[in-house]
Each structure stands twice: as C-alpha cells, then as structure tokens.
Design a binder for these strands. Structure first.
Lengths: 192, 192
DNA sequence: CGCGGGTTTGATGATGCTCAAGCCCGGTGG
DNA sequence: CCACCGGGCTTGAGCATCATCAAACCCGCG
C-alpha cells in the first residue's frame, strides 16, 4: 500500500525504518472508481493526495462550459488544489479519476503534524514543491511563447507515458487548445 | 541591509537573534544599476536573489527576437531561474534590473548549508515555494482559459503596485500578448 | 446491429499578431 | 529656451492562427 509513496520519499530524503512507520500513520488510504470525484468545485480541498495507482486530473469549467485541465497525476505523483488546501477557501477546480485509482490522503493538520514529527518531511516537501514549480514555470513559458504545434511537441517529448492513457480531447484541454485544433496538428505532424 | 529579508522570513517562521545573525552570513550583497544583467542566457544561474530594493524581470527571447517576461520581482520578492539553479544546466532566461536595485544573493552550496545550519529555513523555503507554485498555477490557468482582456483585468486586480513601475510593453509581454493588443484592450476598458 | 463517445474534416468567423505610420512626451544639445 | 531627436504608446489595415459549429466517420460495446 505504501510502497510507492515511501519509494518516492526515499528518493529525495532517506527515512529510517521508524520514521517510515511514523509517516504511514498520517495518511488515509482511499480508492476511487473511474469518473469518481476527489474534489468538486465549491468544496474546500481538505486533502493532498498521493497516487499509488491510477490516474487523475484537475480541471476547471469556464462560463461557456468548457473544461480546462490544469494537471494530470499518475502513479508516484501528488495532486490537490494547493490554493484551496492552504487557504481554506472553496476550490474553483474539480479533481476526478480517469481510471480506477488508489490514493493516500493527508489533511492539513496531519500535514503540519507530520513535518513536526519527522523534520525530514519538511525537506521532502520543499524539494517536491520546487520541482513542481519548475515544471509549472516551463509550461507557462511555453504557453506564452510557443504555437499550438510546438507546445504539443514539447509535451510528447517529455511525457510519453501519460499520453496513451488520456483521451485526446483532454490533452487538447491541457494544452489550452480546441480538440479540433489538436487533431489537425497531429495530422500535420504525421504528414511530414 | 537585511531588514527586508529578515522581515520576510520572520513573517513565515520566527528566528532567534542568533539564527538571524547566522542567516546573514550566507548572503552576498550586490547592487545593480538599471539595465544591468544579473543573469544572461547561456550562463548557469549561480544565485537565488532576494530583492531588498528595486525591480527586476526575468525573460526569454524567442527565435523571432521577441521577449517574453516570465516574472517581475520587486522589494520583498525572490528571483532566479530555478531550473538552472537546481540542475546546473545553462539558463534559457535573462534577468535584468528595471531600476537601480539592491540584492542579497545566495549560491547553491550556501543555500544547502544554510538549511543545514538553520532548519527553520527549510520550512521558510517550503512555504515560499508553495506560495510561488500557487501563484504560477493561477497564472497558467488564466492563460489557458481567459481572453487577453480578462487576463489583464486579473493582473490589475492583484498587482496594482508593480504596474506603475513597469513599461506597458513589458506588461504585454508578461501577459503573452502583443503590445498593440494591450493598448487596444486598455482603450476598450476606459471607454466603458 | 445499432448506439454513442471520441475523433476527424470542412467552412466560417473571431481574436490577436504583424507591419507600418503617426503621435506624444521627456531629454538633450545647440 | 527652443528645436530636434528617440522611445514608447497608439492607431489602422491586412493577415494568420485558432475557435466554433456542424456533419461525417470510426469503432468498441451492449
């Protein structure tokens, strides 16, 4: 149950046997069926979730009813609406499962208590967050500077794994383009 | 010299007098004239910089020669190319001063050593990075879902301070739109 | 076999970019 | 003190990219 999480943590900081046992106690296992929500718009995001198995996405819905995917999370990744989690404000995002999924949840007070109890986790989350920030900045940068086609190329260059598991219209939504546009971009690319 | 930095740190974690003195020892003060570079494309980003006074921007230049501003940093903010700083890879970004500026620099090994010496700083940087991540995610989200006009409105709603100090074409670049477009958006807005 | 979600394709239109010219204003040198 | 730059902002016309709307297609599944 905790193999993936502990593996992930130990890649960044190494925990003793005792610390590992302690860390486990702060998490709540949860299973989600495909299409089930972890978070719905309007709710406060109570948990940060680590994905042991499966696939989720976070997205918002604009006033025209269009979905915009902010993040995908597969095994070995974290997902939450960090803004809502940290501030306690209601979330503007939804998080749902694209496959049957197994999660480890941690709530705000456990999150704090865990770092109190195991100071290395403070370091772990710092490193984790730094890496997310770098990734998000690069994505933003691409979004501002590049065309639809170039952004798609960047994506397939980096994330070959996720793409096979996600329907194409969600990839388009993640890139911030219409599904028709992605379809045409792909045709262009295979053409040459 | 260190008032702003220590103030910023003490807002998130509280340091003893001794810890404050220790923290100071890891930083290198540096002054930059307007238009001077802190980092140029192709160099490795050796430092993370805290702004005591002044104003900087980070930006890249695309193959058409267009600048894209990734970040502005005024007093009480940090700036760096985090990717290059963490990996040691050459940076694709430039950082330069828009006003005469006073910085406190910290290099990679001091950064690690400081967290070793003052564990609270680990926590400080975790919180700092979390907040940056939230801000960057919201900006990305807006960029994907909103029109040029809506993005500009979001910006002026949040950052009244910076806007007066930055030339308009850089604001446009920050938003990812052409300067002409921003000019037109502004006319539209005052018109009604 | 037929339904339905997802993808493709085509035609049209909106948004924002490009290029070019004019304007405004602050700074500089005669 | 004034004329003359020059940078940045504005304005206009034409154009490219991408979104929208609608229809056809494809294919897995009941």
């Amino acid at each position: 149950m905790f193999e993936v999480l502990l593996g992930n943590i130990n890649k960044k900081v190494s925990l003793t046997e005792k610390e590992q046992e302690l860390v486990k106690t702060f998490f709540i296992p949860k299973k989600l069926r495909r299409k089930q929500f972890l978070l719905q718009e309007g709710e406060v995001c109570q948990y940060t979730a680590f994905v042991e198995k499966g696939l989720l996405r976070s997205y918002n819905v604009d006033e025209k009813g269009h979905e915009h995917v902010l993040q995908f999370a597969v095994e070995d990744w974290w997902i939450a609406d960090l803004y809502s989690f940290l501030t306690g404000e209601p979330s503007g995002y939804n998080i749902d499962a694209l496959e049957d999924t197994e999660l480890l949840l941690i709530n705000g007070s456990s999150y704090e208590a865990m770092m109190e109890a195991v100071p290395k986790m403070e370091r772990y989350f710092r490193i984790l967050t730094q890496n997310s920030l770098v990734a998000t900045q690069r994505r933003l940068s691409g979004n501002i500077s590049l065309s639809a086609e170039e952004n798609y190329k960047q994506l397939i260059a980096g994330n070959t794994g996720i793409l096979q598991r996600v329907p194409q219209h969600m990839i388009a939504s993640f890139l911030g383009i219409a599904p028709e546009t992605l379809s045409r971009v792909r045709r262009q690319m295979t053409g040459k």
